[in-house]
Design a protein around this nucleic acid. Structure first.
Lengths: 115, 115
DNA sequence: CCGTATCCTCATCGATACTG
DNA sequence: CAGTATCGATGAGGATACGG
């Protein structure tokens, strides 16, 4: 249980996993990544990337000699261990979507009395 | 990606998954469940259970004729489809814990320069 | 026992403007 | 391009008291 909480603390929030997913198909520059993760602001992307980096999930590469500076982000090796988690969540999300189709919310809210 | 977001919206937050886990070993009464999920207040437990119920993950059984009223919560069948998700998160949480041991945060924060 | 009502605090997130 | 600074809104979550 503690492990589940740990995972949720690290991956919870609105953006962590979308960012990871955005990096799955290879390294990306900051702006590129911001376009990939629809709706995220630069502030959020920066903050979230910093946290992911500290936790060893993402690596930040700086090409300092260029002007303007070029920064690239990539999934660290430890970041790739998230694949099963992402697949599980994605699979369940789809499954749940199908479930919702066939089970109207009204029926779910009705009280179940027991003798 | 949309599916991952859906899953996170439903299972995100501090308590949803801990509650589900608390119900894995069989149905529980409200108070019983509150003891199981360490630290949760009655307000939160009530609110979260309501949401889980609306989404078809948990079923609420009311034994009305007793005094005081007895209410039991159980994982709905659709709730059991979360097992793979929980296992994935739990497995990753443990793996990450081991990873942290061997990779001090200091090393992770250092800039990586590229030619 | 099983909650709800009320009040409150704080983290999260967004918008906008600005810098190296 | 790759961010940071500042301000502000919102909502999750907690404390406490009370009701059926």
């Amino acid at each position: 249980m503690r492990a589940v909480r740990d995972a949720l603390d690290l991956l919870g929030g609105k953006w962590k996993l979308p960012i990871i997913v955005g990096l799955v198909h290879g390294p990306k520059r900051f702006k590129q990544l911001q376009r990939e993760v629809a709706g995220i602001t630069a502030k959020m992307l920066s903050k979230e990337l910093k946290e992911l980096e500290v936790n060893g999930l993402v690596t930040r590469y700086v090409q300092a000699d260029a002007a303007p500076v070029a920064v690239t982000y990539a999934l660290a090796e430890h970041g790739t261990t998230l694949y099963p988690v992402i697949e599980a969540l994605q699979g369940w999300g789809q499954q749940h979507r199908r479930f919702i189709m066939h089970a109207p919310a009204v029926a779910l809210a009705e009280p179940v009395l027991v003798a």
